[in-house]
Structures are given as C-alpha cells and as structure tokens.
C-alpha cells in the first residue's frame, strides 16, 4: 500500500506542478525578477500548497499515520553552515534555469534536450554533494 500511495502522491505532485505553471521556467524566473515584469503566480502556488500541508501537520498531533508506526521527528531547529551555503547555491541554480528538482522531473517529457541536460546535471550535482559536504566540514574544522 505504501508503494501505491507513493505513486499517487508523485502523480498528484506532478499534476499540481503542471497545472500551477511551475514547469514553465518563465513563470519561476518572472517571480524572481523583481526588476522585470513581476509574475506573482509562484506566491499563489506556495500559499495553495502550504494550507493543506499545515492542516496535515495539525492532524499528526492527534492521529497515527495510516501505513507507518509513527510520524517523522523534525530535525533540531539548528541553522547550520550547510543549510545556508546549500540554499544559496540552490537559489543561484534555480534563478539561472528556472527549474527546481520537482519540476525538473515533472517536465522531462516535454522539456526537450535542455530539460534532459538539466536533470542529468542535477543528478551529477546530487552525486558529488556528499563529497562537497565532507570538504566543507573539513574546512570548517580546520579553521
């Protein structure tokens, strides 16, 4: 059942990204571009997604998960160096191409060669990320 849920969740996620326009890089870059013709759509997408999820978080306090023993424990509310550096690097890539990981997969079927190259580069980045993390930790320990 967990497998079926995963497939349904992925499908809804993908449809939501397509319907909301988040697979269109113009809309993402249009939202980030405060000095251009600013496009507010992304704010509506975020707001629309956060509402059901906020209700779900409330439900986790009074219910048990359907196909698991317990809900995940949230990480300690610690703002580490990797969170800041990683989010900054991610934001730069997001601004350059207008794609983040979810839409990169959701748009693969119609994104042409550019979409495929982006997804492969993203996969390569994810593959080397553990080594980058080790380097950063070593550099921090040495300083």
């Amino acid at each position: 059942m967990r497998n079926l849920v995963s497939f349904v969740v992925g499908s809804l996620f993908g449809l939501g990204l397509l319907i909301s326009g988040m697979t269109n890089t113009n809309k993402v870059q249009g939202w980030l571009d405060i000095f251009g013709a600013w496009d507010p759509t992304l704010a509506f997408v975020m707001g629309g997604a956060i509402i059901p999820m906020a209700i779900a978080w409330q439900l986790t306090k009074i219910r048990k998960p359907v196909f698991a023993d317990s809900f995940p424990t949230p990480p300690a509310p610690q703002i580490g160096r990797n969170l800041v550096i990683g989010s900054t690097l991610f934001g730069m890539g997001w601004g350059l191409a207008g794609l983040c990981p979810g839409p990169a997969i959701a748009s693969l079927s119609f994104g042409g060669g550019g979409g495929v190259v982006f997804a492969l580069s993203m996969a390569a980045g994810m593959l080397i990320a553990p080594r980058v993390r080790t380097r950063l930790d070593q550099a921090a320990a040495a300083s």
Partner: peptide, 27 residues
C-alpha cells in the same frame, strides 16, 4: 491555476505525511 495547482501539491504532501509518514521533498 497557481492556487489550484498549489493546492494539489499540498494535498499530495499531506497524503504522503498522513499515510506513509514521509516528507514530500523532491530533492
């Protein structure tokens, strides 16, 4: 479309959390 699509994304994340106790983070 943004609001409706966003709602579907949030619904997907809510189902993943409430059924499988997992966080729907693409990366």
């Amino acid at each position: 479309y943004g609001l409706v699509g966003g709602g579907i994304i949030g619904l997907a994340a809510a189902i993943f959390l409430l059924f499988n106790a997992r966080i729907m983070g693409a990366s």
